[in-house]
Computed example of a mutant assay.
Amino acid sequence: MSDDEEELPEPHRVIRMMRLDDPVAVIADSEAWRARDTYPDILPRGPMFAVTEQEADGRWRVLTADESGPQGSRDELGRTCRMRARAAADAGRGAVERAWMAAARRMDREKLDELHVADCRFRIARGDMFLRLGPEGPEPPRPSDPDPMPAGRGRQARSRTAGFLIDPTAATGMSEGLLKLDLLKYVYASAVIPVDVRADSVLALHTHPGGVLLPPVFSVFVRGTGAGWIARATGADTPQEARDGLARRFETLLPASLRRTRSGPPGLPEMPQQLKNVMAGQLGLLDPGVERLTDEQLAECARAATRLSGERLDRIVVLGRHFRITRLERLVRLGPDGPEPPRPSDWDPELPVEANAPPEGADDAARADEG
């Protein structure tokens, strides 16, 4: 091996920046560079989790992403196994079908973050989400962010995350490369974070020193009577999906007399009043000590739902609360063996769907003992 080959970094540590020639990529890189000045503060939003599968060349590909917790992604992996079992059954491959169904049943009962089925290898991957913040609040969507669908049809846009290839050697623009450098150095602040959470974030700098940026997602943040911005929704693939989600949430608060009769999300059920009160509180629309919205406040929520259904709004004020569609960056850390799995300190209270069910065959054994 030559001296030059010995000095090459491991693939997962590579950050490859180059001059971009594609006009769209040049514009996106320029917008990212301006965001460093306009929204200079980078704050953690929390972890996200994804189902990944290893390719034949050793790289990993994202199948689905779920920011809510590791168990949501484990459940999705079980669903993937069932879909592949069905495909094998349709192809008349009985042994392969049985292998996939056995894997699905394991996912139903065990908290597995790594799974091998025949030649396929899966991993529940962990990532971190980050928020850019400036003097005027969190960063909204950028003009270059893909947003192809009209109001009411945001969910129909093709996901840029599903099928994303985790390739640290892929070339990026200067701005994305610098952002990756910044995020790879990040550890949770000790003053506000539990000791075990911070310790795991420090350890990750050594066990998974590389990383890849996933396509951004978009959430709804709200600033109410206090000074801070609070997330009020999970991540969406496009800005329009986030806008549609906010419109639906306003719509669910409304009585039938205020619901839209024209375009908009169809089939929303009439919620019990108690549930509407809970949802209004989750949106931050209730003042301290107030249990429900007044008729006048509901009318303002109805106007907001109507506006969101017809306009591409990234900012809207409702009942004195400032709602903003917000852009979130996502980083998946990489080590020599691939993406970082869930950490011991990650919040993971949910159990697999059949974790408390008796083992397979237990009922038959009990009947045999009784006999």
Rank of each mutant, 00 (worst) to 15 (best):
D244G: 13
A302L: 08
C81G: 08
S144V: 06
L184D: 13
R260K: 03
V332A: 08
Q156G: 10
R248N: 15
V51Q: 09
D244K: 02
M174N: 06
G69Y: 06
V26Y: 00
A170P: 06
L213G: 15
S175A: 14
R126I: 09
T207W: 06
D66Q: 07
R142T: 11
G127A: 13
L178G: 04
A247R: 09
N277H: 13
P239Q: 13
A256E: 15
L8H: 05
R126D: 04
G72V: 07
D57I: 13
L205N: 12
G245H: 15
R333A: 07
A88K: 05
E6I: 10
A28D: 09
E350K: 00
L286R: 07
A157L: 09
R243F: 03
G46M: 00
A236Q: 14
V26P: 01
P40A: 05
D22R: 08
D66M: 04
E370F: 14
R79F: 04
W33F: 12
S159D: 12
P23H: 06
R223E: 09
L268G: 09
P266C: 13
P239Y: 14
K180E: 08
Q54G: 12
A25Y: 04
M129G: 14
A231T: 12
G371N: 15
A87K: 07
T80E: 12
A242E: 09
R93V: 01
A99L: 14
K276R: 15
E340N: 02
A104H: 01
E270T: 07
T172L: 01
V197G: 10
L328K: 06
A89H: 02
A365M: 05
R16L: 11
E53C: 15
G245S: 15
T261Q: 15
G310A: 12
E350R: 02
E270I: 09
D364C: 08
P135G: 11
A355M: 09
R105P: 00
R315I: 11
G92S: 11
A299K: 08
A247E: 14
P358G: 14
S68L: 02
R324L: 10
Q54S: 13
R109P: 00
W229G: 15
V24G: 07
